[in-house]
Design a protein around this nucleic acid. Structure first.
Lengths: 326, 326
DNA sequence: ATGAAAGCGCTAACAG
DNA sequence: CTGTTAGCGCTTTCAT
């Protein structure tokens, strides 16, 4: 399309090789010709063809990112952090979405691989055993975030389990008499719901350790009525939601019934979504530290790409954000 | 890296060309060899190298998307719609962010160009005259969304001006005595704020046409106090915000002062952000139809890529979403 | 200090 | 129906 390295070579009356050396500052070359070549390259608006370069070097200085979508604040924040960090390290990003479809996820990963990205950051929803093996065999490093995929794959995430554990302890101290944990349907065939499973595990562990008996786990999609039937009078029930959206939806539903969060019942979300800034009463939630996750994932990936050794498993504490609903 | 077309050719004892023909279903080839080649390609997990293919064909079946960021619901929705529509038409997307930095925006566009994307969908913040020319000279079509960039570039967007015009008419009918329009600082050097300018234009046009005199435009970042000083008693003032976030922030501020939206003052946002579902009272807003925008932009771009003729300027009406604050 | 030549993996024009 | 050849634009030995 545009002006190529051959054009510059011809104009300057030198060989392609010399032009390369001038532009990439590699090898020995006289300062005079270097300056001259750079000058004409500039003047003619030369820009390297990244496909050709990638093909020749099998290195693209691009990292791939695969997440569920970007409508969800959680992923949007991760994507943002990853993009920024990558760019500051001289890498571009290629963002792909899988919409919670394991097959599509694999396609997107393959597409990135076939485009020779130098590494991938992946928030997977795939739970097939064979899938983890494929990822491990990939020609470039892959760092998983959010959900673990098999064992041994590089991972960055927050300590979901512990966060919920502490949340439950807090709820018990606040003398709730019944605890309800709300999450999407787990153990859906082939679907990786690691973070939700971890949160549920934290919930169950906590009630068990505390010898607390009146607890419930609701996994169904249609939770409103069940939740309503679990309300105890006098602020007796606390709902621990595995995600802020669940909490918001529940609060909306209960408001319709005339119950308000923090008064008639307890409520917590999970994710620290910025939306919550505008909702009253402020919902108690957990900060997922997406920015840190994104940065750490990039740092880990770049280390792996450059074959520096580094920790390949990082679990960051998730912090409690005080609200007025627990 | 992986298995190439040469490997398959060698294994099958045929030439590369034959393999190509078998795989791409092009040219004449015997069904027998075709089947055999496809079989072995399958077995050996052959996947085409997209860089090499792109270089050879100078066609990548990828479209680039450049937006401000993905934290903002507006762009997230557009990105989602674009990704989906592209994928359903056999194209992948390459999403890049510019964070409202005109220089970075240009870099990202160039990067996409240098990667031989087949076309670009761009939500620009660049207002330099020369920039529009560069875009027009690009080797592949570019469709702009949200903000217009110069004249003559393909464009898809909503009718911001009309939407605000009608909003103001509505406010006047509701007997507000003072109208305040809130937007980010316009006319920032080199920054393209077309949509906000359009909305302001709609506001000014409407008050003028109605002969309404007590109106104000606030552009400063620090609008809280000024807004407060513009409050008239008995629900006298309506605040028209050029964006839902402004509306939410203002509502939060006023709530702190003891004033509630829809009671002591009128309020509207713009964007139809889904957040608003969870905020009471429901804020009146305008639906930006991001999904339609995204789909239409992809359709237009694909037509341009495939050199089919099509309308290259599409303005969709933005619809009023009823709330309880105006 | 500079150039020639081969190659990355794929496609396409032209033979046979 | 199949193979040969050249080429996309850039990088990288290996000579000179």
């Amino acid at each position: 399309m545009g002006v190529t390295i051959n054009d510059i070579a011809r104009i300057c009356g030198v060989s392609r090789t010399t032009v390369i050396r001038a532009l990439n500052d590699t090898g020995r070359i006289s300062d005079a010709t270097k300056a001259r070549i750079r000058q004409t390259a500039q003047e003619n608006g030369y820009r390297p063809d990244l496909l050709a370069r990638g093909l020749a070097m099998s290195r693209t200085y691009t990292i791939g990112v695969v997440v569920l979508n970007v409508m969800n604040q959680h992923f949007a924040q991760i994507v943002n952090a990853v993009e920024e960090r990558s760019r500051n390290n001289g890498y571009g990003v290629n963002i792909m979405l899988h919409g919670q479809d394991p097959a599509l996820e694999q396609q997107q990963v393959n597409r990135l691989l076939d485009y020779h990205v130098d590494g991938i950051i992946l928030s997977s929803v795939n739970a097939e055993g064979s899938y983890a093996d494929m990822l491990k065999k990939a020609p470039v490093p892959i760092v998983t975030v959010d959900n673990r995929v098999g064992r041994g794959l590089p991972f960055v995430g927050v300590d979901n389990r512990k966060a919920v554990y502490q949340l439950v302890q807090k709820a018990i101290r606040k003398t709730y008499r019944r605890l309800v944990f709300l999450c999407p349907p787990l153990s859906r065939r082939g679907l990786n719901l690691y973070v939700h499973e971890e949160r549920r595990a934290g919930f169950l562990e906590a009630v068990k350790d505390a010898g607390f008996s009146d607890y419930h786990v609701i996994e169904c999609e249609d939770y409103s009525d069940r939740c309503k039937s679990l309300l105890l009078p006098e602020r007796g029930t606390a709902f621990i939601c595995s995600g802020d959206i669940f909490a918001l939806e529940l609060m909306k539903f209960f408001r319709g019934c005339g119950f308000s969060a923090g008064m008639e019942y307890g409520l917590t979300g999970f994710d620290g979504t910025s939306i919550l800034d505008y909702v009253v009463p402020r919902i108690d939630t957990i900060d997922n530290h997406e920015k840190e996750i994104g940065h750490a994932a990039v740092d880990m990936l770049l280390s792996l790409i450059e074959k520096k050794d580094c920790k390949t498993d990082l679990v960051i504490p998730a912090d409690y954000l005080n609200g007025r609903t627990l």
